[in-house]
């Protein structure tokens, strides 16, 4: 068990990153159940890409203003690129929340255009590419302590909104026409739900990276819905699977020398495959 001993001895290196990943995984896995049920699994991808466009835009504005931001110890540009990324993602949540067909068109368009925008604007940014990449896609190993506060606050806000609006989210998601006929504002409710997706995707992508954020949103939720026989059970299984994958992902990364984000996603995938096997028996 030298791996385990070494892991705990160097706990101070992992602590912040693991706390962020575990909190982020809990919130993303919970939200993932909604994402999978609503069949909008491509939305987190698009939100992540739109966030990236926000980051590059922030750097471009700083470059045009003659500033020389450096982000090794926090960004010196007037507006933190992370906030711009969040703003962009929240803005994208509005068209994504439209009716399903319109929404999927808007999502694909946003994904492609944001990708193009990142590449085009990125060429004009006078900034070390490493800094931009770090803000864009985070780093599951080197996490700033402040990210615990960001991810924690976003998770608390997300769970609070869902605690208050759960019944409406469920009705509008399961049967939008009946909910609309009953007088529940379909669009406003969907915007609020999608805004929570945008919030968590944006802050977790920045903290630990796009791959683990997307993976932890989708795979544990799939497992939860495979095994859960009620909404409550599906949420509980998804959150447990997400938290476990995030925590064990760090250990696997340390012990086996694997890339951390990929290890988390791989473990989520194993949990999902296990759920598939159990359900098919």
């Amino acid at each position: 068990m030298t791996g385990a001993v070494g892991f705990w001895e160097s706990w101070f290196v992992w602590r912040d990153a693991m706390i962020v990943a575990v909190i982020g995984a809990a919130a993303l896995s919970y939200l993932g159940v909604w994402v999978v049920l609503k069949r909008v699994v491509y939305v987190p991808l698009a939100l992540s890409q739109v966030s990236a466009a926000g980051v590059v835009t922030a750097y471009l504005v700083a470059t045009l203003a003659g500033l020389h931001p450096h982000c090794d110890t926090g960004c010196d540009i007037p507006v933190d690129p992370g906030w711009v990324a969040l703003l962009f993602a929240l803005g994208a949540a509005v068209p994504f929340a439209r009716s399903r067909r319109d929404s999927s068109d808007a999502t694909v368009a946003a994904y492609l255009l944001s990708g193009a925008l990142v590449l085009i604007l990125g060429g004009f940014v006078r900034q070390d590419l490493h800094d931009v990449q770090r803000v864009l896609f985070g780093n599951a190993v080197l996490v700033d302590t402040i990210q615990i506060a960001y991810v924690g606050a976003a998770a608390i806000l997300t769970f609070a909104v869902h605690r208050l609006f759960y019944a409406r989210f469920l009705y509008v998601s399961f049967d939008p026409d009946a909910a609309g006929a009953a007088g529940i504002g379909h669009f406003a409710t969907e915007v609020l739900l999608f805004a929570t997706f945008a919030l968590m995707i944006s802050v977790v992508t920045r903290a630990i990276g796009a791959l683990p954020a997307f993976g932890l949103m989708v795979l544990p939720a799939l497992a939860g819905l495979r095994l859960g026989r009620s909404m409550r059970a599906a949420f509980a299984i998804a959150v447990a699977a997400g938290v476990l994958s995030a925590a064990l992902g760090y250990y696997a990364s340390f012990a086996l020398g694997l890339p951390t984000g990929a290890a988390m996603v791989a473990l989520s995938g194993i949990v999902y495959l296990g759920a598939l096997a159990k359900r098919s028996r």
């Binding site: 605690r163 208050l164 609006f165 019944a167 409406r168 469920l170 009705y171 509008v172 399961f174 049967d175 009946a178 909910a179 009953a182 007088g183 529940i184």
Partner: peptide, 11 residues
């Protein structure tokens, strides 16, 4: 119960 629950005051 979905319809009745969703029409209750928020929260």
């Amino acid at each position: 119960i979905m319809g009745s629950a969703a029409l209750l005051p928020i929260g």
